[in-house]
Design a protein around this nucleic acid. Structure first.
Lengths: 159, 159
DNA sequence: GACGCACTATTGACGCGTCAATCACTTGGG
DNA sequence: CCCAAGTGATTGACGCGTCAATAGTGCGTC
């Protein structure tokens, strides 16, 4: 556990910390916007579409139970359900009944979805590299990795 | 300019960088969720509401031209317009015609909005401190600040 | 084998964000 | 004065995210 935690009790946040907090919010939001806009321009996909297609394309048989898919990409089931509805309308995925459990639904990557995803990966990786990868030094990556792990553990601890 | 930039040309992103990228996305998203849920539970406000109310409560006369407000919190005007509509329905703000330019609209913090905001600030600051401020060491804050500034500059440069 | 309960997935309502179109008004050039 | 271009703000359509409610199915217990 962290030194800071012990002494954190009745301390107030410094304005410095608040500024860093705002910067974190704002900068990551801007990063999102850029990447999303680029991805949409390149492939017509949203970040959500991309996550779903990535998970499916890596799944055995390019298919997953709806709940497994939700777990894989860490989405709420209802969110996934809504999103799959939209993706199905666009022909990116198909839904099939599950053989082993008739409550379940299977989500299958369509030919069209696979093609679209394949075409999207390279430009998307390029965009991430351009906006994020190329910005930071190796030491900064190291530090960021450490910070994010710390934050993650902290969030886990108070779930 | 950064050492990395010069050498960045035809390099591919390392999988390490990709992992950090995913962690950045996921962890900040989770932070958002927590803070938003806490804020809503404490005060019934969304993060957007909070930004608007903060800007208004700091403005002279607790009022701002719509476009100035948009600039202050860095929102698109259309987004702000939609949001103000919802906030107006809830009585958090009022809209008034602008005296000097009849195209313009003034946004005024209502009594109710001011009261709600006042009640929200302390718990909100506490929540930020709890989920973010208390998690990191001073050195980590330092490092994060540096990283975010670097990212910001990088984003600015390719606007 | 019927009941209760947990589990899977979906739906509807509503707030939120973006884009493109629109309306109302101002302003500057003729 | 008038009109064309520019500006301030709003709107509508649509995708997205969350919450609460629901429908249907599996399954253990009596």
């Amino acid at each position: 556990m962290n030194d800071t935690l012990a002494a954190a009790g009745r301390r107030r946040m410094t304005s410095r910390e608040l500024v860093v907090w705002r910067a974190l919010i704002d900068t990551t939001a801007e990063l999102h916007r850029r990447l999303a806009a680029q991805l949409a321009a390149d492939s017509g996909l949203s970040p959500g579409d991309y996550s779903v297609l990535l998970a499916l394309s890596e799944a055995p048989g390019r298919r997953l139970r709806s709940s497994e898919l939700a777990a894989t990409i860490d989405w709420e089931r209802s969110r996934l359900s809504h999103h799959l509805g939209r993706m199905e309308k666009r022909g990116l995925i198909e839904r099939a009944e599950c053989v082993t459990d008739s409550r379940g639904a299977e989500v299958v990557l369509s030919e069209d979805g696979a093609r679209t995803f394949r075409a999207a990966t390279a430009p998307h990786a390029r965009a991430i590299k351009q906006h994020f990868g190329d910005a930071l030094s190796p030491a900064q990556f190291e530090a960021l990795d450490d910070i994010l792990q710390t934050l993650d553990r902290h969030l886990e601890a108070t779930r």
